[in-house]
């Protein structure tokens, strides 16, 4: 076959060249998977950024309605996350399996159970618990699917802790703006660098 882009026609391949080619393949596959996960994960990140912003603004403006608001927001958020995983970009859904859904559901169930155990704990502690649990999940996921999730989870945990200790009565607005805002910005960045399949 005439091929103007082939400068050296490979006729024999030795073990070193084969090993180098296999390393190239592994690197490219890893980079591609990361890009696909980033694009798929961007919608989920933005979804929870908006959910946090809405939830914390309601918490600030109308504390008596906060529990009901968060219950509704969490149920809708979990359902939307599972839907995006299954019906989102085809390349992502090809990798979104039962283990991913089960891990997510177990994490939420653990959080709900712990919140029930804590019962009368102050809402600030409950808020910090959910933030660190959710972002801890991102950090763990990042170990498998891409370093950006580790960065994003760490930043939001740091911001949540800073808000918990130093924002005083502005804590809900701090979490809405900086926690929710970071997730939305993270989602936008992932959309830019990710690859839709």
């Amino acid at each position: 076959m005439s091929d103007p882009t082939t400068f050296r026609r490979a006729e024999t391949v030795d073990a070193d060249e084969a090993a180098s080619a296999l390393r190239d393949i592994a690197r490219t596959e890893q980079r591609t998977r990361e890009a696909l996960y980033y694009a798929g994960g961007s919608s989920i990140l933005m979804l929870w950024g908006i959910a946090w912003a809405v939830g914390y603004v309601i918490t600030y403006l109308s504390p008596p309605n906060a529990n009901l608001a968060w219950t509704v927001i969490n149920i809708l958020g979990v359902a939307a996350t599972l839907l995006i995983g299954y019906r989102g970009p085809r390349a992502l859904s090809a990798h979104w399996d039962r283990r991913a859904s089960s891990t997510f559901i177990l994490l939420v169930a653990f959080g709900a159970f712990t919140q029930w155990l804590l019962g009368d704990a102050h809402w600030r502690e409950i808020s910090l618990f959910w933030a660190t649990l959710g972002m801890g999940g991102y950090i763990v996921a990042g170990l498998w699917i891409g370093r950006f999730y580790i960065l994003c989870g760490s930043v939001v945990i740091a911001l949540s802790l800073a808000g918990y200790f130093w924002s005083g009565p502005w804590f809900p607005l701090w979490m809405a703006a900086l926690g929710g805002g970071s997730l939305i910005l993270g989602g936008l960045w992932l959309r830019r660098v990710g690859a839709r399949g």
Binding site: D24, I25, T28, E29, R31, T32, R33, L36, R90, A91, S93, A94, H95, G197
Partner: peptide, 8 residues
Amino acid sequence: AALNVLGP
């Protein structure tokens, strides 16, 4: 290698 990662 990149294309082979894609789903159907």
